[in-house]
Design a binder for these strands. Structure first.
Lengths: 314, 314
DNA sequence: AGTCTCCATAAATTTAAATTATCCGAATAA
DNA sequence: TTATTCGGATAATTTAAATTTATGGAGACT
């Protein structure tokens, strides 16, 4: 690897002299003394084995070699300026990319709004959303492919320690019924009523399904006795199934806001049972945190922390 | 004028780390110690207020900002390399331009051969030939528009001191006659024979004409008595006139080599009279001397210093 | 000629960078 | 697990570089 025969400062000086036509004026422009300029140019000339300026009269004129060097000089310094600008933009969130991870649910129903708000505030930062399983999202955060993520499930133990996991919000998994279901008139259901329902659930691999099963079990229910009409792998499909009267389901409230408002689906309350899970923000503390990521965490997330309060569209 | 937030060395280090994936390896590559690398990157990060590398595990990985900076870094360093190469080429005469000045005579008959030889040796240096009057050529050398010139006349006094004038060669101004002219049989003419001739001369503005007139006068001839058939402003025209038997003329031997060899023109000798002028090389000592100019002066010119010896075609 | 401006040079100072030596943490191996 | 290694950070010292102050000289303008 060859040594560089000049420094950026020397190029800066060269440019200044060429522009001012004088060592002295260049020195004034650069806020240094005249000998500093002279010596640097001498070094440059020695290094490159060329004469750059004719110092004959009162003006310093470029030689042929000087003109040649100046061309490159300008280009180089321009690139430097551009680099500075790009970095500044990155610092002031006028550029760059933010990669966000999310589970199916939050990725579908929550993130679009958050990202919308973020992009409204920082339109020059491009945002990428990656929807994966909790496990895979965790790994992506761990190795830096994702800046920050929101998950609703449990991380593998090893990742749990590696990553920073911050409880962020509560996600209620509401029992929803077809609006014309007989039980949808009851003010409050009893746990035992659940055994009477036909369920349309997510498939058993899904995080949300696992969470629901665990919560119901913990509350004393025998989940084996619950009748499962069918297992689907899409919340939208389940919603449609419920609306068509095919059965009940536990669904994140964030995913059914529109349907509740429209009355096409009914949310039931169950005595002594709250099916809620924690949504957690995960980041990688051992990694560089981009400004965009910082801002997203500090300014955007808190606005969506409460799911109970109706969210304004951006 | 803003200070630069980084140095080329820092960029070099950045690039090396990015390529090697490690501070240590980069340090080895650059023949410095590891702390030197660490500190420079720290300075860079501090200056730009960004984090460039994730130093988590065994490998130093670029952050987003780091990748952004690296892009510019590569471009900048490439430009630097290119600049170096261009300068090297200039130094090794693989580029650049040489501007040569000459009078009508040397420009027409001498320079083409010299330039041919030069370009054969240094084909990548482009050469420009400017044919002007002695006076104008002198000024062009003075203000640097011409690197070096060969003149046959007398410079204005002020330029004489300003420029370096080196006697370079003797240019004989031969008396030429139509080959079938009665006097062309005589072994040696007498000065008085000149009064019997009809002359075809250059116009009285021309340097060569002035030189000839002065030399004849100095040798005791009365130039008023010389019969001038016509005045032309081109040597070629005069040559044609002589060959056509219209008259005699004093012409630079360099301009009639071909005709002498072919016998279409006759060169006469005059007792006690040698019409010779000094061709002089002029350069500007107070100005940068390009390598090309140096080489031309040292290596090319001497090969053409003697007009008596037949010149080889390049 | 005299003065002014501009650049070069020398010596001294200040500033920056590199090195040596050491520590710390994470990954690897026993 | 513990030991070892590798890579990076840090501190103190040395070395090197760039800047400044002071001064001299050459050309240009009056």
């Amino acid at each position: 690897m060859p040594e560089l025969p000049f420094t950026l400062d020397q190029l800066r000086i060269l440019k200044a002299i060429a522009a001012q036509g004088s060592f002295k004026k260049a020195a004034d422009l650069l806020y240094v003394t005249q000998p500093a300029v002279s010596l640097q140019i001498q070094n440059l000339e020695k290094q490159l084995e060329i004469t750059i300026f004719d110092r004959g009269g009162r003006k310093a004129l470029l030689t042929e070699a000087g003109r040649l060097l100046l061309e490159y000089c300008e280009r180089i310094l321009n690139q430097c300026d551009e680099a500075c600008k790009a970095i500044e933009d990155l610092n002031s969130l006028k550029g760059g990319t933010l990669v966000i991870g999310a589970s199916q649910t939050t990725g579908t129903y929550l993130m679009p709004r958050m990202i919308g708000l973020f992009r409204q505030k920082y339109p020059e930062v491009s945002v990428q959303l990656q929807v994966h399983s909790t496990r895979r999202t965790g790994w992506s955060v761990a190795n830096g492919q994702i800046d920050l993520a929101i998950i609703g499930g449990q991380l593998p133990g090893d990742l749990e320690n590696l990553l920073q996991v911050i409880p962020y919000a509560t996600d209620e998994l509401a029992l929803v019924l077809p609006s014309k279901h007989p039980l949808s008139n009851k003010k409050e259901l009893l746990k035992e009523d659940l055994y009477k329902l036909n369920f349309v659930t997510l498939d058993s691999q899904s995080t949300t399904r696992k969470v629901v099963d665990k919560l119901l079990k913990d509350s004393g229910l025998d989940i084996q006795r619950l009748k499962i009409e069918m297992e689907l792998n899409s919340l939208e499909a389940i919603k449609n199934a419920v609306q068509s009267g095919l059965g009940a389901s536990f669904l994140p409230v964030v995913s059914i806001e529109r349907e509740l408002a429209a009355g096409t689906i009914h949310k039931a309350f169950i005595a002594d049972l709250e099916v809620k899970r924690e949504l957690k923000l995960i980041t990688n503390p051992s990694r560089y945190t981009s400004r965009a990521s910082e801002v997203f965490k500090k300014n955007i997330l808190p606005q969506f922390a409460s799911f109970e309060s109706p969210l304004r569209e951006p």
